[in-house]
Amino acid sequence: MSNGDMNAGEAVGVRGVWAGYDGRPALEDVTLDLKRGALVAIFGPNGGGKTTLLKLIANLIQPWRGEVSVLGAPAGEEARRVAYVPQAELVDWSFPVSVWDVAMMGRYPALGVLRRPVAADREAVGAALEQVGMASQRNAQIGALSGGQRRRAFLARAIAADPELYLLDEPVTGVDLTTQEDLMELLTNETNRGRTVIATTHDLAAAAEHFSTVVGLNHRVIAVGRSELVLDPDVLSRTYGGHMLVLQDRAVILDDAHHHDTESGGEHHYHEEGAKRR
């Protein structure tokens, strides 16, 4: 599938988009073109609109104004070629499913309503778990896994879906360094095959080291370009604004990884799962 056509053209086009929650804009007049085969990191401060942008591309929310096209069609029309992995805290980890079950869910949309998983689906799921290094944990309940293993299981679900476009919300937040390296190597391989990966991140070091394209976002697109941009003090200060402090030529970003004041519409976060439920 690595013919020239796959690499040509646009994966995502965002034109003049305004979007937000409860009348408060999270994105203001955002325009962005991302090419197929790109490995894109979206970085920026808390509440700067990173997750909102990802959800627009995933067709999980609608723009107030402007247009979003994905894989050459209006957002949502090519949904089966898109795999979305939410932030870890949006998942109910006490849910009674195994690693295998989670990865198999990646196959459900393409299977359709009446078909059950067949040998080809089991093969794809087995291969995906192999790729993320979770084959030996396939029967484990997801709540029994470490943070890194949980990310691996969800990436296996995305890989099992065989998507053209990966949308990953904070894929390397809160995972160990080995997992981070493994996941980034996998994603790099996927983009080398012409797949497109768009991830949000708080981790500027990871963005600079692993991604081919970075987007600085603070309600507006501050900068788009090669990964070295995240090391540019000018770009950093314009992206993080008041969230950044310059101390003796070193930029310190005052931004914790836990990124929001309130849950956005319809979301339930599972931080205090143990405390709340039992």
Binding site: K55, A58, N59, L60, G76, A79, R80, V82, A83, Y84, V85, P86, L90, V91, D92, F95, V97, V102, M105, G106, Y108, P109, R157, A161, P163, L167
Partner: peptide
């Protein structure tokens, strides 16, 4: 289990 992931992939 994951309404966002399911909706994004077309369910």
């Amino acid at each position: 289990f994951d309404p966002l992931g399911a909706a994004a992939s077309g369910l």
